[in-house]
Amino acid sequence: MLEQELKNIWKSSSEIERIKFDLSRLMMDLNDKMKGLERAIRRRDRREIGAAVIGIPLFAYLAYELPFPIARLAALLNIGHFIYLIVKFRRMQKKKRPVDFAASFTEQLDHQKSGMQEQVRLLDSVLWWYVLPPYLLNIMLIAGIGDPATYDWAPLLKDSVPVMATEKITMIIGLGIFYALIVWMNKRAVKKTLKPTISEIDRVLLQLESKD
């Protein structure tokens, strides 16, 4: 009796609003929404590799302009690292599987969880693949800048590069702070966003699997 009453209450809950589809426009609307979302994804993908794309010509110019062999080598290696980042980001973008909303509830949650665990691994290791290599290369570049007079070097860049030891140390410390901030921000995203969400998913999965 109560069972049927509850089902009736439940079924009548959709009577509060009448839903009407303008079928002639619906397909157009859905297509527009899909295109809008795809554009947003493309913009995000471009943003991810944007910094690396800007960095390549900058370091190419430095490699061309700087007469100091160690600094030049560091600039070239920096270009190599930017190429590595572009390839890595592109691979990551391709690897991302779209959410299968037609999968069962538990499958979808499992899939979401493994995607987020992958992101945690990536962000947690940002120090080793995103921060440390360019930081070491930049130290090498800065330390490799010698006395411009020795190389008879007088281009526009001369006043912008650190020549004195104090300038070099200041720049290395500044870069260190910048890179430390990147590591901190990524660790924070893992701690504040990803891990709590994984715990939430685990909680729901456990609720479903438990017979109590």
């Binding site: 509060i16 839903i19 009407k20 002639s24 426009r25 609307d29 859905l30 929404k33």
Partner: peptide, 20 residues
């Protein structure tokens, strides 16, 4: 992104207060 082609119209009479 709102789909303008889907409209929701409140229905007062069919779903009375007690039921709600």
């Amino acid at each position: 992104v709102r789909l303008e082609s889907i409209r929701f119209m409140p229905v007062k009479s069919a779903h009375d207060e007690l039921q709600e």
